[in-house]
């Protein structure tokens, strides 16, 4: 329909531009991440410093999020936990996306490889998620590395499925078939038609995998199979808080939980916005 565009007037107005919120949100997230990185050394210090004079203080002027049973500042510990989650999540999401891309490419080699990859995806999806996660983390002996590997190994199937479906569809697309008849090599088609179409999916898929990875890292740690109790991971904080919740120390669970929720929501929104912006047609609407 837009082909008949005649009169155009462009405007640079800020006000009323629906993307203002998105841009500000992305900027705020970026600023928060950078601030977190810069504050890291002093945060780690504060998170570990216990003060037995100030045990289990309610949120107030000096300790915004309150303190825990050893008198450690909960704000510092929550931020510290989120930073740790970010690293684990990023590493696991990256690893998971790479596995997915590799398997999707493998599925494109031929019908037999495709059946094999399909079977693998279905069998992993058929197993209960959390149990597999626990088994792998347990087998690898716990710790940061084990959590990253376990989360990556359990989170590739859904993205593989998306990428494989996309690739199969692309290879049958008229423009790809025509490109082959124009004498373009397999390498040219992969580089110019297939990969550029897949990368946004991979990027968005990876970004959406990220909150998942964080949640599962927290779950794993919460259950005691992940990071060691000494590390201020969100999962550890939440597990600790359980013991004191019934005694009315609500802040021990609420603040780390809220932090986790906000982080996951922010990346989820970002991933979905990115998906829209990366398609030329949708980017204009």
């Amino acid at each position: 329909m837009s082909g008949a565009a005649q009169a155009k007037t462009s405007q640079r107005v800020l006000r009323g531009n629906p993307r203002l919120g998105l841009a500000l949100g992305a900027l705020a997230l970026l600023a928060a991440l950078v601030a977190l990185l810069i504050a890291q050394p002093s945060l780690a210090e504060r998170a570990a410093a216990s003060d037995f004079q100030a045990r289990l203080l309610a949120p107030g002027g000096e300790h915004w999020f309150g303190t825990d049973v050893l008198g450690r500042d909960l704000l510092a510990r929550t931020l510290q936990g989120l930073t740790l989650s970010l690293w684990v999540g990023a590493a696991a999401a990256l690893l998971g996306s790479l596995i997915a891309l590799g398997l999707a490419a493998l599925a494109c080699l031929g019908p037999r490889a495709d059946v094999g990859v399909g079977l693998l995806v279905d069998s992993v999806l058929g197993l209960p998620h959390l149990i597999l996660l626990i088994l792998i983390a347990f087998a690898l002996g716990g710790g940061t590395q084990a959590v990253i590997i376990a989360v990556a190994l359990t989170h590739w199937p859904s993205l593989t499925r998306v990428l494989r479906a996309e690739l199969l569809q692309l290879r049958q697309a008229d423009y790809v078939r025509l490109s082959r008849r124009f004498g373009k090599s397999r390498g040219y088609i992969i580089r110019h038609h297939l990969l550029p179409a897949l990368l946004p999916h991979c990027l968005v898929g990876g970004l959406l995998l990220f909150p998942h990875a964080i949640l599962h890292e927290a779950a794993l740690t919460f259950l005691g199979f992940g990071l060691s109790p000494g590390q201020p991971a969100i999962g550890v904080l939440l597990a600790e808080s359980l013991r004191y919740l019934s005694a009315g120390y609500w802040w021990l669970g609420v603040f780390p939980g809220l932090g986790l929720l906000l982080l996951v929501l922010a990346f989820d929104r970002l991933g979905n916005a990115l998906r829209r912006l990366l398609t030329p047609r949708e980017a204009q609407q």
């Binding site: 008229d174 423009y175 025509l178 008849r181 038609h193 550029p196 179409a197 398609t279 030329p280 047609r281």
Partner: peptide, 14 residues
């Protein structure tokens, strides 16, 4: 060379 009916499908949308 094949010239297809629906041109929208015959070009890379990106």
């Amino acid at each position: 060379q094949w010239l297809p009916q629906v041109p929208e499908l015959a070009v890379n949308p990106r």
